[in-house]
Nucleic acid binder design. Structure first.
Lengths: 202, 202
DNA sequence: CATCACAATGACCAACGAGTCAGTATATCG
DNA sequence: CGATATACTGACTCGTTGGTCATTGTGATG
């Protein structure tokens, strides 16, 4: 247990900064957000931000990555512990919808980042893209396995995985925009029902 | 027929500028794109841009709006001229996939704009949002009608309309990212199949 | 060819914001 | 308490870029 005091302060400031960054980036988007505003919300001076992160980009990736990894881990865990393919698909959708419901700011940043992936191709964001594709792969493998077992009809599993991914995003977006008057559980069942009927046997 | 000469030149320059803007915005995104770069690609001086559009924002909306209206009109027309609900849903998906395939730069801008809709809420982009919701409504009404006729099972038509919308976007994205090795027609059939099975009777 | 109207230009300006750093406050310790 | 170290501050720098406008080019007209 080295420098406990220093570490505690660092951890505290880091969390404070990332939380503020999350709020500001979610509200303004990356380009419109300013370091001054993040500092204001975090309750520190602008210079302090640079004691903990070397640049605006780094704060952004840190804020995004933290939640992204958490969500990826939760999804993997829930999907793994589900028994059947049906339950795995359900778990995938439910986990994501629940997590985004609790982390709306994160979803805003995430969603806008996905939108930007088509511009600036080849540039940064490799980490982000990898995680994204890995998530799709989890679903892809569930589907492949299900097809082999004839639990679902033969189908292009990779394209379907993407589609289910986007179906989930679609529901979250509807909720965030206030376009869904249904409860979270109702939305989960709705999405799963649509998906399962779409890929199901008949 | 007034000032023909002037009108022709104006039309020519306008088209040239919008095309250049479309390319640059698609590549860089709104914030990263510079007026200097748009001017360079259009083959004019920066000042010339301001003879035809009052601001960067205006060029952006003009470039986006032009294609957006065209797509909306095409979709409406194709859906209307289809006979059954099944054919209407098919027409909706096919029209969009085909249009985006031919206007990839437009799709990039469109997609990134959708991503930004969750940030900056309440601000500009009202036109854009209206058109977006109107497109969903077209599909919603097709579904409502189909439910009444019992052509599909009873279902939350508004949420489903959104979901089909995003399913379509999902396929386009896969194509643009080079993740789909299928032909355009195959992707259309795939998307339609998935959708129709999902909402179908059994 | 001279004149004129206006389209086009690009050097310039002002605003803005990321990142810096000399100075200040605060904590630690002998 | 005084000395030293370190966390923090915010005024400043400096590159970038949207937008302007005095000047230049062009083509029509008499």
């Amino acid at each position: 247990m080295p420098r406990t005091k220093k570490d505690v302060v660092t951890e505290f400031r880091t969390a404070e900064i990332l939380q503020a960054a999350c709020r500001v980036f979610a509200e303004q988007g990356f380009e419109q957000a300013t370091m001054a505003e993040i500092a204001r919300v975090a309750g520190v001076a602008k210079g302090t931000l640079y004691l903990y992160y070397p640049s605006k980009q780094d704060i952004y990736w840190a804020a995004l990555g933290r939640s992204l990894l958490e969500l990826a881990a939760a999804t993997r865990s829930q999907v793994e512990s589900a028994a059947t393919a049906e339950q795995k698909v359900h778990a995938f959708i439910a986990t994501k919808l629940r997590y985004f419901e609790e982390h709306r700011d994160f979803f805003r940043i995430y969603y806008s980042e996905v939108g930007r992936a088509l511009c600036r191709h080849g540039q940064a964001a490799r980490q982000f893209d990898d995680l994204y594709l890995e998530q799709v792969k989890v679903l892809d493998q569930v589907l492949q396995h299900a097809v082999r077992r004839k639990a679902i009809r033969p189908i292009r599993t990779d394209a379907t995985a993407f589609a289910l991914f986007d179906l989930t995003r679609s529901l979250v977006t509807q909720r965030l925009r206030g376009l869904s008057r249904a409860s979270l559980d109702e939305d989960i069942e709705f999405a799963f029902d649509l998906a399962w009927k779409g890929i199901g046997h008949r």
